[in-house]
Design a binder for these strands. Sequence first.
DNA 1: ACCACCTGTGCAACTCGTTGCATAGGGTGC
DNA 2: GCACCCTATGCAACGAGTTGCACAGGTGGT
Lengths: 184, 184
Amino acid sequence: MALEHALLVSLSERPASGLDLTRRFDRSIGFFWSATHQQIYRVLARMETDGWVRSEVVAQTGRPDKKVYAVAPAGAEELARWLAEPAPAESFRSEVAVRLRGASYGDRRAVLAQVEALLADHRTRLGHYEHLAERDFPEPDRLSGHDLDVYLVLRGGIRLEQFWVGWLTEYRDTHARAHEGAPA
Amino acid sequence: MALEHALLVSLSERPASGLDLTRRFDRSIGFFWSATHQQIYRVLARMETDGWVRSEVVAQTGRPDKKVYAVAPAGAEELARWLAEPAPAESFRSEVAVRLRGASYGDRRAVLAQVEALLADHRTRLGHYEHLAERDFPEPDRLSGHDLDVYLVLRGGIRLEQFWVGWLTEYRDTHARAHEGAPA
DNA sequence: ACCACCTGTGCAACTCGTTGCATAGGGTGC
DNA sequence: GCACCCTATGCAACGAGTTGCACAGGTGGT
């Protein structure tokens, strides 16, 4: 399981409350991981009883108090242990791929409309990530250590969006060509 | 939920038993979906009580009997309905990405060794998929309908492996360059 | 005869993750 | 003063997915 470890990485970068972490997961780390606030709260509570993190209630002006979590020594040890552990092979799950493969058992035009919508979505996201890279990392050659890791994960997000745009475009164009003069 | 629909697609291509489906999911469809036999058996049972599939016990020589499932009319309807439904945005989850981002909180050399192992693995898989494409689809321009869909999903598998090889190579090479003369 | 192994189906218990709801303090609009 | 929204934390119930085990029939080795 990796949510614990994703939280440890994020808290190592900077202490945060449950909701802060939820918002972070909607952004940078969120390229490759996501979690709802409920799940994050539950896992944080478990991590605290396990001694991986420590919390401190912080009063705010004009807002409810928040519980700010920070990595405890046992959590740092666990993170280091996990990082050294061999990475198991990942299985990618895509509902879209199932739809593309099954398109001939339903309304192909409806599936192609979905492809078009997804393409627009992934193109937007790709542009957004490229903008982030230019804004936050104007000179990537000078990076090292953790900053370089953050940049390279952003590069992964960009490459993943390029994968989607490339594949969906190939799907759409190849079907368009195949149906010229022979509709199906 | 998509396992039901993935099974409907696979059974639309050809009727099969639970274990047959498990083996198929380790192959072609398995680029983008995977499931254990236990889960497949359970879902098949539920689909049968819902009337989406029908089963028939087939005796075999030298082997136990098997229960061969085929799509029932209600299942075909459900598949068509699901295919026309708008595709929700997918969230990609990668433990590897968490490790890459967190590498500076542990032993970076251990993480780079994992990257090396993953690279070898993805390169092997890429070669395997490319071989499949050449062997089974020597003339992709002539394909249409479901055959074209099968080919294009294989293309997606190839593109996904290319994504991994490209990203992991960039991670490794960029860190190698950053550490020339300045180890960390 | 016995054991080890293979195919094929299945149950039970557990963890991970999602969905819907609850609660509590504070700010804003009318 | 009241309704409504925002931040922040949390519970309860459910569904999806994994892990470990059980059982049955058949084959092959010793």
